[in-house]
């Protein structure tokens, strides 16, 4: 089931990361956040980056977005080398980062306002997106009137408004309770199906990674390296009860054992 490395599929490769390292200069010396990352992601693929805190997952996401430069190596998104902020992406963070002074709809519309897009068409799409995530009727609500799950859904709609071919998500459901999380995972997979995009999804939940992904990239900490890449061969659409399926459990077991091997978990004997 596992492959040693991302197999370069030149024809439909959406993202190719070659020999990328990132070093932060710190007071106590240099911090090697990422070391020699090689990874290829196909167009339309849902890839989870799984690893413990401090393995450089978020750093890798920032490098992909072009908001932070890499120290070494090359990142290509589409046929363009990433050298500055990449406009063809949507980003969702763990915090929803909604603007408190704007309603749900206005928050989503921010994306169109800044990009100077056709506001009328954008508005229509914004309303459509909000409806798709069950927020019809809450377009005019302010963030402080919404629950954590609703706020995060608005921030997902905002990330999708301009139909980005690539969606970057940094532990987007990490701050939500388990049931809200289940629902948002289902919502996200439906949005992915309807919008045809590549998703780069960071998580530290093994079952979340298996449930959502086509491939799971296992990273090891300090310095962050790609340890293993596991193909998740489960049918779509994924259903909640699939998590009880023996094949699902095989994947979570395999991943747990990889982390045990890395010394991420310390268990009492």
């Amino acid at each position: 089931m596992s492959m040693p490395q991302g197999v370069p599929l030149a024809a439909d490769a959406h993202i190719s990361i070659t020999g990328v390292s990132k070093t932060f200069k710190g007071r106590a010396g240099d911090v090697h956040a990422l070391q020699d990352i090689d990874l290829t992601i196909r167009r339309g693929e849902f890839v989870s980056i799984l690893g413990p805190s401090g393995c450089g997952k978020s750093t890798l996401l920032m490098l992909l977005s072009g908001l932070v430069p890499s120290t070494k190596g090359m990142i290509k998104v589409g046929d363009k080398t990433v050298e500055g902020p990449n406009p063809d992406i949507g980003i969702v963070f763990q915090q929803d980062v909604l603007l408190e002074w704007r309603t749900a709809l206005q928050n989503v519309m921010m994306q169109a306002e800044i990009r100077k897009a056709d506001l009328k068409a954008a508005r229509e799409r914004a309303l459509q997106l909000l409806e798709m995530v069950s927020l019809k009727g809450f377009e005019g609500s302010y963030p402080k009137e919404m629950s954590g799950g609703m706020r995060q859904r608005v921030s997902i709609c905002r990330a999708l408004l301009h139909k980005p071919p690539l969606l970057l998500m940094d532990e987007p459901f990490g701050a939500l309770d388990a049931m809200t999380r289940d629902q948002l995972q289902l919502d996200l997979m439906r949005l992915c199906r309807d919008n045809a995009m590549t998703v780069f999804f960071i998580t530290h939940s093994i079952s979340e990674a298996v449930f959502l992904s086509d491939r799971v990239v296992v990273m090891s900490p300090r310095p962050g390296r790609v340890e293993r890449i596991i193909d998740i061969d489960l049918p779509r659409p994924r259903r909640l009860l699939m998590r009880e399926d023996p094949r699902f459990n095989d994947y979570t077991r395999e991943l747990t054992q990889i982390f045990q091997g890395l010394g991420v978990f310390r268990e009492e004997v």
């Binding site: 920032m62 908001l67 902020p85 990449n86 406009p87 963070f93 915090q95 980062v97 800044i114």
Partner: peptide, 18 residues
């Protein structure tokens, strides 16, 4: 303004003025 908010603004292509 959180770091995320400023990242978000930049990912949208916001000018410093915006």
């Amino acid at each position: 303004s959180s770091a995320e908010m400023l990242y978000l603004a930049r990912s949208m292509g916001a000018t410093p003025w915006q």
